[in-house]
Write a protein that binds this DNA or RNA. Structure first.
Length: 875
DNA sequence: TACCCCACGC
DNA sequence: GACGTACGTGGGGTAC
């Protein structure tokens, strides 16, 4: 049975505002109406357990009723600003709860509610209307109940036909007749003077409707009343009209769209935190609430010896590893859920079973996992091949909405309205306390997880298909996770002795520098402490303070650069910082994670994290190995092929983002520039400064490059001003000139923002999505940020799509051609391979071919490639 | 342990 | 006008 709750947003907000004292949070934002609204909402959800919900708001000042009666709602007190400023927060709240809200010019919330309640009634849904306004009672029927606030906000009364009859002695449809007669001072509906509730009801009991009353005025008892009725005939009819809810509002919603149930708990909690609704935060915070929730009984078997019957497919599969870093990690246990049953399989039982191992590697046996790469890699380390992965809930969740910061199964389950399960953290503990629990606890938790995966697979795929993201999911990200898993498992070989030698060299130079700096300062202090450094520079040495941070003086590189002239010590400090970074992050950091026996580093690529679709790399991050300064670049000499005589081959896309921009914006000038393989920064300089190629100075090119950079990364005028060392105004002018030079780009920027506002999201070439709810934010910064994101994400995201596609195709090609070459790393626009000497020539041909033809754009894609003995030499 | 500052890559 | 402004990861310091 479907149950629809329709809430009169304005009415409830007003009630809440006046019922509660003016609360505000520490930022001075008033929150009492939001708070009241929230408690009301939660109560309704909890008590009514609706399947569908909608909150309607009044839009604007005038409605069609003003045409009938100019004075409609006249004389009303203006909404207090303390209340109006809370409406955007209420909208935000509803969005966080994934509750549809709706408002429409010319119509009141009542009319929207009326229309939808009639609609739902036709479908025989149960409808509850929530408001503080008695007018709504006219909607009551066999299917529709109206819940009116009594005192305060959570004190309510449900009206059905019987209660209306009991209270008023009339039918719901007569409510409008009652209003017509008695009027409504709050809406400035006149009614008939001298007629109040009592008289109105008496008349209606006798005559039924206003029309009948007026037609039979002669039969009305009381001389005065007769007179009043005759005199105010028109007014009474008009009043009835005004009180009548219009139930044919044109709306573009379907009832199905009002579905309620899946929402982002994180968003809700973070909004509650922002609003300082402490009690609600406690109630909602994931760990707590999930742990407290009663879990439904779920039966399962613990497998003692793997048999055929345990291995039906398709099967949801959990390969549990507690360590965040799954490389060479212990498996805590397995769970399988399929149509034949639910099973927990202890690690050893599974791994020593030939049946299980054969099943795992059988491509035709379909497996559904959460984080397939994790499962594949961890089993790979145990020499168990996992094939036939047919569904990855992690990837599905990420593609549907990358903005969720957690893809913990319990979070996904909550969001998607699946059976709730405990968060891993609640079962395993966190930090130092994290450990494998008792077997029965573990077994049940794993089975529950597999069960959720099993439950959600179809629905997630449906959603992906609806979004036209199924191909992206199935043909790109899923195969890519296998490719990435292989890259991670393969690892990159490092020359550990060379790293250590560089470290020793750095250490001694750092000691030298430290001595110099302390001498210059006249005091011994920790140079790595921004606090101590700030005190030395700005208090002891009295250097001018350029910038402050929240906690003290800023000592960032750009600040220090500005002080370089003022004191000799600054150069040394900058150098110290540079070498210190190299030593701690890159030398010590890399040595720490290099496997002793194999001298290899196994990073993990996070495929479900960035908002744009790029990958990220952790433990260690191999996507930020130094290159720009020679000193740091030398680190790359330590990255070597894993086999004697092999080469490192690096292939990078040239200006892929700007090529993508040229394509998306269909900008002829840019397209031509790329077709002619021009230097794009020089070309930009020519166009922006209106000079010929010969007249482009290095300064102009540098500026043009910075602007192009800004376009690609979506930086603001402020960001551009920082990178060019100019004022914000100048930077803004610069951007303006750029856009004037490339009108199609300017047009694209406008169009994409408009489109994003309409759709609520932007997409890439391969339909990757990013939702941008802040585009309608009342906060200038949030909105501007969302606008830049709207412009930038399709560019960066499409570039990510392209290289991902190239990776998947490259893996296929290597296999087909039976090549020994291996893909090792991806650095956003660059692929790193290790290649046996006899394959170098072939790879130098194949790699660019695959990369350049990954997709077809209006401009050619260009790949630069080179090979060398180390990563350093592949330049 | 959580946060800040700083710095590396794209 | 809006006062904070590409995306990531990681190391070191510091306050709790």
């Amino acid at each position: 049975m479907k149950k629809l709750i329709l809430i009169d947003g304005n009415s409830i907000a007003y009630r809440a505002f006046f019922a509660l004292p003016l609360l505000n949070n520490d930022k001075g934002v008033y929150t009492n109406a939001v708070y009241g609204f929230t408690t009301m909402l939660l109560k309704i959800i909890q008590e009514e357990k609706p399947t569908h919900m909608l909150v309607a708001f009044d839009a604007g000042k005038t409605t069609f009723r003003h045409k009938t009666y100019e004075e409609y709602k006249g004389g009303r007190q203006k909404t207090p600003p303390e209340l109006s400023e809370q409406f955007p927060l209420i909208r935000e709240l509803l969005d966080a709860f994934n509750i549809k809200r709706f408002e429409l010019d010319n119509y009141e919330a009542d009319d929207i509610i009326g229309t939808l309640s009639k609609e739902a009634e036709k479908e025989k849904w149960e409808v509850k209307v929530v408001s503080g306004d008695k007018d709504l009672l006219q909607l009551v029927s066999d299917y529709v109940t109206v819940v009116l606030t009594k005192k305060g906000i959570t004190n309510v009364e449900s009206y059905d036909e019987a209660l209306i009859d009991e209270k008023y002695g009339i039918k719901p449809h007569q409510i409008i007749d009652m209003k017509g007669l008695m009027g409504d001072s709050s809406d400035n509906i006149p009614g008939v003077p001298g007629v109040g509730e009592k008289t109105a009801l008496k008349l209606l009991k006798q005559f039924g409707t206003i029309e009948n009353v007026l037609d039979s005025v002669d039969d009305v008892s009381g001389k005065k009343l007769k007179e009043k009725l005759s005199e105010n005939k028109e007014q009474a009819l008009m009043s009835k009209e005004l009180a009548t809810i219009f139930t044919e509002v044109p709306y573009n919603l379907t009832l199905d769209e009002l579905k309620f149930g899946e929402y982002d708990e994180e968003k809700v909690v973070s909004l509650f935190k922002e609003l300082e609704f402490k009690s609600l935060v406690d109630q909602f915070d994931t760990g707590v609430s999930a742990a407290e929730k009663e879990l439904e009984e779920l039966s399962f078997d613990v497998v003692e010896e793997v048999k055929e019957e345990h291995l039906a497919t398709p099967a949801a599969m959990v390969v549990e590893v507690l360590d965040e870093n799954y490389h060479q990690a212990d498996i805590a246990g397995f769970a399988l859920v399929h149509e034949k049953g639910r099973y927990f399989i202890p690690t050893e039982t599974a791994l020593r079973s030939d049946l299980f191992v054969e099943w795992a590697k059988d491509e035709t046996k379909k497996k559904w996992l959460l984080d397939a790469k994790r499962g594949v890699v961890v089993l790979g380390w145990k020499d168990v091949l996992l094939d036939g992965v047919d569904f990855d809930l992690l990837m599905a969740s990420y593609l549907l909405d990358p903005s969720h910061s957690s893809h913990d199964l319990s979070d996904i389950a909550t969001r998607k309205g699946a059976k709730s399960i405990q968060a891993d953290e609640a079962v395993y503990g966190k930090g130092a306390k994290r450990k494998v629990p008792e077997t029965d606890v573990l077994a049940e938790h794993l089975v529950r997880k597999a069960n959720v995966i099993y439950e959600l697979k179809e629905r997630m795929e449906e959603e992906l298909k609806k979004n036209e993201q199924f191909e992206l999911f199935k043909d790109l990200e899923m195969p890519l996770s296998v490719v990435l898993g292989r890259m991670e498992t393969e690892g990159v070989k490092v020359d550990i002795d060379q790293l250590k030698a560089m470290g020793e060299d750095l250490a001694s130079r750092l000691a030298e520098l430290e001595k110099h700096i302390h001498e210059h300062a006249g005091v011994s202090f920790n140079i790595n402490s921004p606090k101590q450094l700030g005190e030395v520079l700005f208090e002891k040495l009295g250097l001018p303070v350029i910038k402050k941070t929240k906690t003290g003086y800023s000592t960032s590189a750009d600040v220090l650069e500005k002080l370089a002239e003022d004191h000799e010590i600054i150069r040394h400090i900058l150098h110290y910082r540079q070498l210190g970074k190299l030593n701690s992050t890159y030398i010590e950091g890399l040595v720490k994670v290099t496997h002793k026996g194999t001298s290899k580093i196994h990073t993990r690529f996070n495929q479900a994290l960035t908002q744009t679709g790029r990958l990220s790399s952790t433990d260690p991050n191999l996507q930020n190995i130094p290159i720009r300064l020679e000193e740091g670049r030398k680190i790359r000499k330590a990255f070597i092929p894993s086999e004697e005589g092999w080469k490192i081959l690096a292939a990078d896309y040239s200006q892929i983002e700007l090529r993508v921009l040229a394509h998306i914006a269909q900008d002829e000038k840019l397209i031509t520039a790329f077709k002619e393989d021009m230097d794009v920064h020089t070309k930009t300089a020519m166009d922006v400064f209106h000079v010929s190629e010969e007249d482009v100075t290095s300064m102009m090119r540098r500026s043009a490059k910075a602007v192009n950079f800004g376009i690609v990364y979506g930086i603001s005028d402020y960001g551009l001003s920082q990178s060019l060392g100019i004022t914000r105004k100048e930077a803004a002018k610069f951007i303006e000139r750029y856009l004037a030079s490339y009108p199609n780009v300017a047009e694209y920027m406008e169009r994409i923002i408009e489109e994003a506002r309409e759709n609520g999201y932007v997409s890439t070439l391969l339909n990757r999505r990013r939702y941008l709810p802040e585009l309608t934010s009342r906060n200038f910064n949030q909105r501007s940020f969302a606008e830049r994101t709207a412009m930038n994400t399709p560019i960066q995201g499409t570039a990510a799509d392209i290289i991902k596609k190239a990776m998947v195709e490259m893996a296929l090609r290597l296999e087909e051609a039976n090549l020994k070459s291996r893909l090792l790393l991806q650095v956003h626009d660059e692929l790193i391979f290790e290649v046996p000497p006899e394959e170098v020539d072939e790879m130098m041909k194949i790699v660019p071919e695959v990369m350049e033809n990954a997709v077809e754009l209006a401009v050619p894609l260009k790949v630069d490639i080179s090979a060398g003995d180390t990563w350093y030499d592949a330049k």
